[in-house]
Design a protein around this nucleic acid. Structure first.
Lengths: 355, 355
DNA sequence: CTGAAAGCGCTTACAG
DNA sequence: CTGAAAGCGCTTACAG
């Protein structure tokens, strides 16, 4: 077998992939001029531009992403690093990022990681050396993983963290006000007459867990109440952990009238645990969640929760990265926002009953 | 600012990314020899090999993925195309594929698509022209999307389909025996004394929906029973569609004693719908699902369902692609398996009660 | 067993 | 406004 078409390396193909050289030849210009037109650079005679565009269309020309990345300063590649066990969260993050990267002609490389992998630093260093990324997006718990942060900083790749807990100045950041959100949910419970409120904490590696507890505590204090330690149980953001935490809670001699779980999955665990114990939700006990996952309306009673605009946060994160990358080309200095705080919403449904 | 290290393009960096040239210089050989060692090619004196390896380690050399892909016949890039609304499914698929691609030094490009997008063909054609993929993996419903198949075939990219319905010979295929699985679940119901069984069909774009109905029908026939059309309701694999289908079912003058839903999410919808209507599961009505999503043990009663090894199927799909790619290098002809059928398992839990 | 040369398809830096 | 040359970091094809 031998090559039968430009760009073809030894096997027959129906499609002739054309290159910048083909377009230049057809348009009767140099490849540099084609490059200018394709990249929307100035200083091309309108007439020439048109000629090139026509040729490009006729040949269905698409710039080769690999060649472009290898030759240029940009790779058109964004990396998404995560280690989050909640599929719905990961999925929304991916969708948000991809929506933005596609708009900009970028591609996404997903890189699930194990945050406790002893080789994590080397893994990431190798990855970043192998494949020049224009930017990296980190989601919790990696947003606060020192090993990951060091590896990325060492590689000098711009990155944005979603919902980090520490050192917001260390990178670009996208988040919601978790403290305020938890404050509002707790106040909502208080407004319904609940004074005895249990709390299921999230995974301690996630900043959100601490922030939400903070908001919970502040809301109680604002009404002259204080946290009852025996009603605060440790969870890990999974259904099972919520279930177990609730079991411990329900074993207390005195019971709260409401439970605020740090995320929806744990709230489902609480509801299941209560149901097992013959405690009706919300008649005997109210339950509040956080996140508004799709499942929140797939159970009865429908869960009252905080809606977090996850997809939008991911979109914003990608946006910051792309903005930075383009700026670098034209100006070199970047005085753009380093942080963006998106808004949340308290969604009232059926899992809370006034006392 | 000026370049201060090899491979550095005008901005300061802590990390010196070294290239094949650096390694060659340090080892005192040509870049071709380094290439041989790095790619584990034969015909290198053991002594030379060692020298090169040492140099590579000292410089933390990692072959540049872009350069490698541009110069060579392989791109080390696999694409995953999907349009599946179930996050847990997508997540498992991604994990399976990534596990295999990482083992082989490949990278994954995820490409969520809208299967009814009128521009789908052009979108995919453009993508495949821009970015040379070594292989593509398709999941339902794209596995049977004619537009997608044509675009990929036209680009002459090897691909494997997961759980396709039609033309298994058209590509490499990974699946389970959906007919048999549904047959077994239905038989299980029959064994428990249920003769009156309702069926909630899945999305008609998914082959699994038809296959599972087929198995359902065959199992009934095998016992001399036949399908009662008024107990077969159309669903679309979502919770809501299961809920609505169940409402229609429960509005029938006569009710089945069990319902077999084509996937877990619809089974949850059926359970919710029953609960709303004051029908207890499994006391008054048994429910069976399909997939064994994590949520199956997050509800009460725990769902009896079919476990599908999704992650493994994805791994196998990637495996086929990589095997094909390597073979192409060495031999050119491929007499490997074109299809792989993985095993499923019926998981008995609490949503079915003997009649 | 080893290497020199050409080339992958672009962008960059520079000249005019 | 346009282009010729060099180069990105590798692999391929070939020579010895």
């Amino acid at each position: 077998m031998k090559a039968n078409a430009p760009g073809n390396k030894g096997f027959t193909s129906n499609t002739i992939v054309s290159t910048i050289t083909d377009v230049a030849r057809l348009a009767g210009v140099s490849i540099k001029t084609v490059s200018r037109v394709v990249n929307n650079e100035p200083n091309v005679k309108p007439e020439t531009r048109l000629k090139v565009q026509e040729a490009a269309v006729r040949l269905s020309y698409r710039p080769n992403f690999l060649a472009r990345s290898l030759a240029g300063a940009r790779s058109y590649l964004i990396g998404l690093f995560y280690d989050n066990p909640v599929p719905a969260y990961v999925n929304e993050i991916q969708r948000g990022v991809i929506r933005r990267t596609r708009e900009g002609g970028y591609h996404l490389m997903i890189e699930p990681q194990n945050s406790h992998d002893p080789n994590l630093e080397r893994t990431i260093a190798t990855l970043l050396a192998t494949i020049k990324l224009d930017g990296v997006i980190l989601t919790p718990p990696l947003s606060d993983n020192e090993v990951v942060l060091r590896a990325i900083e060492a590689a000098n790749v711009p990155f944005v963290r979603i919902s980090p807990y520490l050192n917001p100045e260390r990178s670009m950041v996208v988040c919601i006000d978790d403290v305020r959100a938890a404050f509002e949910m707790t106040s909502h419970l208080l407004d319904q007459g609940h004074q005895d409120i249990g709390f299921i904490a999230g995974h301690p590696d996630h900043g959100s867990s601490h922030r939400r507890f903070e908001g919970f505590e502040q809301a109680l204090k604002a009404r002259g109440l204080s946290v009852r330690r025996e009603w605060v149980k440790q969870g890990y953001y999974s259904f099972e952990s919520g279930f177990e935490a609730a079991q411990a809670l329900l074993a207390e001699p005195q019971l709260p009238t409401a439970v605020f779980a740090c995320n929806d999955y744990m709230a489902f665990g609480v509801m299941a645990s209560a149901q097992r114990a013959g405690i009706r939700v919300p008649e005997d006990m109210s339950v509040a969640g956080f996140d508004d996952t799709p499942s929140a309306t797939m159970i009865w009673p429908h869960l009252t929760t905080i809606r977090q605009p996850v997809e939008l946060m991911a979109y914003a994160a990608a946006e910051m990265l792309l903005a930075r990358t383009s700026l670098k080309d034209t100006q070199g200095n970047l005085d753009q926002d380093l942080g963006q705080k998106l808004s949340f919403a308290l969604i009232e449904r059926d899992s809370i009953k006034p006392l």
